[in-house]
């Protein structure tokens, strides 16, 4: 049995072949799907000679394997190419927009977990009674309703009708300057700048998109928690705990929940990957200046390098999310650790 540190190291090393696979797939798929990016640069009246020159300058004249090697070489220097739309390096663009997506993702996921796990436990311990039916009904709608639609409904209720929350204009109301960038997270930077008033504005702006994300991620989390918890409650070890005189609460929260969390953690990894890879439509609805919006623009304008950079970033996020899941697993489940 290898010690914990060695297992973590081995798991970390696996990231490299996986990342290489992702990059390779992205590169060749983009080449298959996107056709010839020369057309994006060349004016319609360009001669064949000019097109050939552009192609050569873009490095597209080389055979594909050579292009791939060049791409890998650039990638090692964190060079993802230049965005056709913004005129900046794609890496810089992604880096600029990353905090907005991460902040929204963290808040949304926190809401999803904070609501999903207790609801799942509630449903499991009251199985086939009304709390269970309510949770199952709500979560079913959370899974079935498209996220962008939920976002629009929330806007129409809380902004248009009730006027409780501000409209979907991004991270801060229009005309309000950002605080000095430290972490890029507005909920942190506003406090670091000593501006609780700005914090409150930012919190109100993030509330609706985060609630939308929270609603749609709480749904699967609650359902998986419910079924895993229900299974744990019927297990032999729970029967033992009851037979030894443990009370309901100890049985639920100590002797069942931890066992039930294993599949939940796996699910959260997937949900997190999905969220942090940019909720593309959601960010557009809320004018959220994150990666999802960037990706949508890149698709609309056939921005080859930008899209490819985004896909690589999104895939790596999944890799990282599942790496964290695996590490968490080792922590929760001693059968893996020992």
């Amino acid at each position: 049995m290898p010690p914990l540190g060695k297992m973590i190291l081995r798991r970390l090393l696996w990231v490299f072949p996986v990342a290489f696979g992702v990059v390779t797939m992205t590169f060749f798929m983009a080449r298959v799907l996107n056709g010839d990016p020369t057309e994006l640069y060349a004016p319609p009246e360009a001669t064949d000679a000019l097109r050939a020159e552009i192609r050569a300058r873009l490095g597209l004249a080389d055979p594909l394997p050579i292009q791939f090697l060049h791409y890998l070489r650039d990638l090692l220097h964190f060079d993802l190419g230049i965005s056709f739309t913004t005129g900046q390096s794609v890496a810089a663009d992604l880096w600029d927009r990353l905090p907005a997506t991460l902040e929204l993702g963290f808040v949304g996921l926190a809401i999803g977990i904070a609501a999903g796990i207790p609801l799942g436990v509630l449903a499991a311990v009251h199985r086939e009674r009304w709390p269970d039916f309510v949770v199952r009904g709500t979560t079913l709608s959370g899974m079935a309703l498209p996220q962008f639609w939920v976002g629009l409904v929330l806007i129409s209720i809380f902004f248009v009708d009730l006027r409780w929350l501000p409209g979907p204009v991004g991270r801060l109301p229009i005309g309000i300057a950002l605080p000095p960038k430290v972490t890029g997270f507005l909920l942190v930077d506003t406090l670091l700048a000593g501006r609780p008033d700005l914090w409150w504005l930012a919190a109100k702006q993030i509330a609706l998109p985060a609630l939308t994300l929270g609603f749609s991620s709480a749904a699967p989390i609650a359902r998986v928690t419910r079924s895993a918890m229900a299974e744990a409650l019927q297990s032999d070890y729970v029967r033992t705990a009851i037979a030894m005189g443990h009370g309901k609460r100890v049985v639920w929260f100590r002797y069942s929940l931890r066992n039930a969390l294993l599949p939940v953690v796996t699910l959260i990894g997937g949900v997190a990957g999905h969220i942090f890879a940019g909720a593309v439509l959601l960010e557009s609805i809320f004018a959220w200046p994150g990666l999802g919006q960037y990706a949508l623009q890149a698709i609309e304008r056939s921005d080859f390098a930008a899209l490819q950079g985004f896909v690589i970033y999104a895939s790596l996020l999944y890799v990282i999310a599942f790496l964290l899941v695996d590490l968490l697993y080792m922590f929760i489940d001693p059968r893996i650790r020992t």
């Binding site: 070890y237 033992t240 030894m244 931890r258 066992n259 929760i332 059968r335």
Partner: peptide
């Protein structure tokens, strides 16, 4: 109190 048949299943695997 009670002793069950399959002791390894009767004990909680994560503690």
């Amino acid at each position: 109190s009670m002793v069950f048949q399959d002791a390894r299943a009767a004990l909680n695997p994560v503690f």
